[in-house]
């Protein structure tokens, strides 16, 4: 995964995998403040506050509303586990 500048991210709920793919950046609401994750981020784990997770890839932006979430970032990418998550809709700028 180290030879690309894309971040592998998967957003999983107990019902199904909501999103999986290579993206540029993810912005998530951590309990100790909002944070952004790019490729090659240092390993990091946090619980998420209730709020929006934004996934940015090129010109596409996808926003998911997340409740009861947890994020795990390691060199394989980022995994967001959420008890409840749903998408607002896909926006192209």
């Amino acid at each position: 995964m180290a030879d690309t500048d894309k971040l592998h991210v998967s957003l999983v709920t107990p019902e199904r995998e909501l999103f999986a793919g290579e993206v540029d950046q993810v912005v998530a609401p951590g309990v100790e403040g909002e944070f952004g994750v790019l490729a090659h981020h240092a390993p990091f784990m946090t619980t998420l506050a209730e709020g929006d997770v934004t996934i940015l890839d090129g010109v596409t932006k996808r926003v998911f509303q997340v409740r009861g979430g947890f994020a795990d970032v390691n060199e394989d990418g980022m995994t967001i586990l959420a008890e409840h998550a749903n998408e607002y809709g896909e926006n192209v700028h």
Binding site: G30, V31, P43
Partner: peptide, 27 residues
Amino acid sequence: EDTHGAVYEYEPSEEELLETLLPRNLS
């Protein structure tokens, strides 16, 4: 998973994370 020896950063602390995750794991 093999973490390749990388050191994780935890927010909040490991103990607090476990305290919230374990009940969730139960469900």
